[in-house]
Every structure is written in C-alpha cells, then in structure tokens.
Simulated assay, not measured.
Amino acid sequence: MSKTKTSPVLYQADIYEASSFLKSLVEKHVTPQAQQWLSEKTAMLSSETAQPKDLYLAFSAAPRFVGKDKLALTAQNLETANTIRTGFNPSHWSVAQAARTILLLSFPHQNPDDFLATIEQLFNTADMGELVALYAALPLLPHPESFKKRAAEGVRTNMGDVFEAVALDNPYAADYMEEDAWNQMVLKTLFVGKPIYRIYGIEKRVNPKLARMLSDYAHERWAAGRTVSPELWRSVGPYLDANLLPDIKKLFEQPNELEQQAAALACSQSQYAPAKELLNEHAALKERVTRGELTWDLIGNRHLALN
C-alpha cells in the first residue's frame, strides 16, 4: 500500500492555472497598490533576465505589501484548488503565503538544476514565515520530485508552524515522501497533539512498520499513565494481527466512547478473522460503522474539540 521504493509519480500542477487562481484570491484581500506591486514583481520575475536575488527580495518583502490576513475561501475555491492539484488545500493559508507562492511560480524553471538551487537558497536563508510559505507551496512547484529531502528535513524541525506546513493539508508528503520520513511525520503529528485527519493521504500510505511504531508509542504512553489519541489507530487497523489485536481489545474496554469507536473502525479495516469476530461482539458499534455514522474524520474532529 505504500509508495516508497518505486519511481515517484509526478503530480505536476499547471503553473499558469495555479498562479491565476492564487492571484484571484489575493486580489480580493489587498489594495490596488498591493495588486500593482505584485503584478510588477511577477512580470519582472517572469522575464529572461530575472535573477535569483530578484526573487529573494520580492519573496521577503511580500507581507509588507499584501499583509498577513488569512485567506477567506469558499467551498468553490477549495474545489477549484483540488482541481488544479489533487489534494491542494489552501484553507489555512495567509494572503502573504499566496503572494509568495505566486512569486515562486513566476520564476523561470526551464532548467531544473538552476531552479532547485534558487529555491534551496531560499530555504537556507528563510525565517519561519518564509519557511511556512515554502513548505506549503511544495505541491505546486515545478520539478516537485526534487524536494523530497527538503520535505523530510521539514518533518524534523522544532518549529511548530513549519512542521504543520509540511504535515497538514499538504499532499506533497503523501505523494513523494520516503516511507521512513512519512512514518516519522505521522508519529510526530500525534506526539505534538495535531490532528491526524488533516494529513492528506493518510490511508494510502499505511504500512506495517508504521502500525508497529504506533502500537509501541501507545504502549509507552499507557505505561506512563497517559492516554493516546484515538486517531492513532487509523494506520493500525489494516495490519491487525495476533500482536496488535490486544491493543484493540483494550480500547473496547475503555470508558472513553471515542476509543471504543476507534476500536470498531480499526477492526472494520482489517481482514484478520479474529478482528472481524471482535467487531461482531460489538454489534451496535459495527452497525454504526456499516451505516457510515462513524468515520475517522469524525473521531478526529471530536477528539480535537475535547482537547
């Protein structure tokens, strides 16, 4: 189920479409003067004479001209974003992020090595806000396969906002990240208390190593008298076996309703006969799963609301 050893599948967004879409969003939030500034900078960066320093200066200056307000997006905006690039979700982006991404997409990218070197230099000198914009923009950038190591580095950061830009609402990780980096990202998301349901592609990147890691993490938490997020079991269910099933039995025995629901969903994901039998023993929960009343996203949202 995991895409790790094979050649990367290219998910290249249409640069013009992405830029036009983001520009339409920015224009709703900024002054005519800011629009003019952005138009001038994109025109300059699109020219054959554009230099990396031109991008660096404009990228750094963008918030001063367009502001840092959050984008106000409609459901139609989000549908359009997903059409431009599957999984692209700018619902938590700021106006400055969108403007910075437009600048990135304006810079010449015909030479992959030159483009990569330019973006890498931006990463190396960026402050936190700039890093957030860079990591969130990865799924839209030309030559996306070139940034796998950079994305893995983002997972290791101690800056919470930067980690979220890599891990949450960003399809890049699911599409390109190596298995070990992906697994560390999922585990860290739980460790820092962020919602798993906002990790794009969480189902398609399940793997047995991650299931074991998550079980070990749960045991460490339990041994210390602590709880674990019921979302943890989302990547465990498909790999239930004799070693992992006792964890699910423990969940069914908990007074916490969300943990019981997570146990039922985990069993419903499994082809392991004892897991199916265990779910049959909890008929009411099984019926709710069958009717679609219980989902991982619902559990994640409820857990987040309670914590």
Rank of each mutant, 00 (worst) to 15 (best):
Asn301Gly: 13
Pro8Tyr: 07
Leu294Cys: 03
Pro142Val: 02
Gln269Pro: 00
His143Cys: 08
Thr101Ser: 06
Val155Phe: 04
Leu278Ile: 00
Val155Ser: 01
Leu104Ala: 01
Ala305Asp: 03
Ala224Ser: 04
Val155Glu: 02
His303Thr: 08
Gly87Asn: 05
Gln12Phe: 14
Ser91Gln: 10
Glu220Cys: 11
Asn89Met: 12
Glu277Tyr: 14
Ser235His: 06
Met177Pro: 00
Asn256Leu: 13
Met213Tyr: 12
Ser235Lys: 11
Ala75Glu: 11
Ala181His: 05
Leu168His: 03
Ile196Met: 14
Val206Met: 15
Ala242Gly: 09
Lys276Asp: 10
Val228Thr: 10
Phe163Leu: 03
Leu45Arg: 07
Leu10Ile: 04
Ser94Gln: 09
Pro63His: 06
Arg234His: 10
Trp182Ala: 04
Ala223Gln: 11
Asp169Tyr: 15
Asn82Lys: 11
Thr101Asn: 06
Asp69Val: 12
Met159Tyr: 12
Pro112Trp: 15
Ala263Ser: 00
Thr42Arg: 13
Lys28Asp: 07
Ala173Asn: 04
Ser215Cys: 09
Leu55Val: 01
Arg221Lys: 15
Phe88Cys: 07
Lys41Cys: 08
Asn124Ala: 13
Tyr16Gln: 15
Ser20Trp: 15
Asp297Leu: 14
Ser60Val: 14
Ala223Leu: 11
Gln260Asn: 08
Trp37Ala: 00
Asn280Met: 11
Pro238His: 15
Leu190Pro: 00
Glu231Cys: 02
Ile102Gly: 05
Tyr16Ala: 15
Ile202Thr: 06
Ser20Met: 14
Ala117Glu: 07
Lys204Arg: 12
Asp114Arg: 14
Asp54Glu: 04
Glu17Ile: 09
Tyr272Leu: 06
Ala136Val: 08
Thr118Pro: 01
Ile15Phe: 07
Gly237Arg: 10
Asn183Cys: 04
Arg234Leu: 07
Ala275His: 02
His109Met: 12
Thr290Tyr: 13
Leu279Ser: 01
Val66Trp: 01
Ala283Gly: 04
Ser7Leu: 15
Ser106Met: 05
Ser24Met: 10
Asp169Gln: 13
Thr42Lys: 13
Leu140Ala: 05
Val162Cys: 06
Pro8Phe: 12
Asp161Glu: 08
Asp247His: 14
Leu304Asp: 11
Phe59Thr: 02
Ser47Val: 06
Arg302Gln: 09
Ala262Gly: 01
Phe107Ala: 03
Met177Cys: 00
Pro32Cys: 11
Asp161Arg: 15
Ile84His: 06
Ala305Val: 03
Leu57Phe: 15
Ile84Leu: 12
Tyr56Cys: 10
Pro8Met: 09
Leu71Val: 00
Ala283Ser: 07
Ala126Thr: 00
Leu258Met: 05
Leu25Thr: 03
Asn170Cys: 01
Ala99Lys: 06
Leu38Ala: 00
Pro246Ser: 07
Lys249Cys: 09
Glu17Asn: 13
Phe59Glu: 02
Phe147Met: 04
Lys5Glu: 11
